[in-house]
Simulated scan of single mutants.
Amino acid sequence: MATYCVAVTGGVASGKSEVTRRFERLGIAVADADVAARSAVAVGTPGLAEVVAAFGQGVLEPDGALNRSAMRERVFADPAARRTLEQIVHPRVRSLLQTQWQYASGPYAVVAIPLLAEGGGRASYPWIDRIVVVDAPLEAQRARLMQRDGSSVALADHMIAAQATRAARLAIADDVIVNAGGLDAIDDHVVALDRRYRLLVAHKSVADVAS
């Protein structure tokens, strides 16, 4: 079981997935908050039942699954609705992620949490040992969103503005990966961080034994 937890976070289109894929290639288990969020409101779960109780049957697909597109549009336009949904989903996501990283094999585990700054940072996730922020210039985020999703400039900027500011994310960072160039630079960053985290885990283990 892993004894050390590293969180990876960053703004939309910053390159978080590229970073977590590289940790996985190094043999590190990754628990993903987006995957946990889908599990939290899967068909037949108490989470989905609570969403329906709050928003009505209209949020469901004909097969009983959550209509994610309709739900996304609703909460994107209504901050109160977004808070209600977050109060249902976020505690379940935190619980799932904590269980997944604790039972992961390897010296440490990674949890990918895109909205860590928005969700309270360490106050909401006190079991996180270290936070990596994947940072990208605004221009790079905008260009990636337009290429990836076919977004207009206005929509891309709106999506970026709806999240925490770069300053807010960097304020919770222990380590920063600046993703402004090619993928080779990400490789080098992740290899260096992996080496650092293995050393931190080793030192922690020695300290635990000594105490």
Rank of each mutant, 00 (worst) to 15 (best):
A112Y: 00
I88M: 01
Q87L: 08
E86S: 04
I88V: 14
S211D: 04
P114L: 08
I172V: 14
R25N: 12
E18P: 01
T3Y: 01
W127M: 05
A42E: 15
Y4R: 05
V134F: 09
S151A: 03
M1T: 14
I88Q: 05
L26F: 01
L26N: 12
V201W: 02
Y125S: 13
L145V: 14
V59C: 11
A29C: 12
V19H: 06
T9M: 06
A171N: 14
D194M: 12
V89E: 07
V176C: 06
V190G: 15
S205G: 09
S152H: 06
D78F: 13
V191R: 05
H158P: 03
G121C: 06
S17N: 12
A13V: 04
Q98R: 02
H203S: 07
Y4T: 12
T99W: 12
V206L: 10
E86R: 01
Q163S: 10
L85S: 01
G106W: 02
V93R: 04
V35F: 07
S152G: 09
V41R: 09
Q102I: 01
Y197N: 13
T84Q: 07
A171T: 07
T99S: 08
L199K: 09
F23R: 08
V52N: 04
L48N: 06
M146H: 01
R122A: 01
V190A: 15
D135T: 07
P62N: 00
S211P: 09
L116K: 05
H90A: 10
N67A: 08
Y108T: 04
D208T: 04
V43S: 08
V178M: 03
H203F: 03
R83I: 11
A70T: 03
Q57H: 07
L183H: 13
R82L: 06
S151L: 13
A136H: 06
E24C: 13
P46F: 01
R122Q: 13
Q102C: 11
L116A: 05
A2G: 15
R83H: 04
Q163W: 03
Y103G: 11
A104Q: 13
D208L: 04
A81I: 04
W127Q: 14
L97V: 03
L200V: 04
A31E: 10
T45S: 15
A37Q: 15
G182Y: 02
L116Q: 08
D184T: 08
R196H: 10
K16A: 14
T20V: 15
S205R: 10
R198H: 14
V89H: 05
D34F: 05
V191M: 06
Y103L: 07
R74L: 06
A164S: 09
R21D: 08
W101A: 00
A53P: 15
A80Y: 00
A33M: 09
S17P: 05
D149Q: 03
I131V: 13
R92W: 02
D149P: 06
R144D: 14
S205H: 12
V59W: 10
T165Q: 10
R166F: 01
V43Y: 07
V111T: 03
F76L: 03
S17W: 03
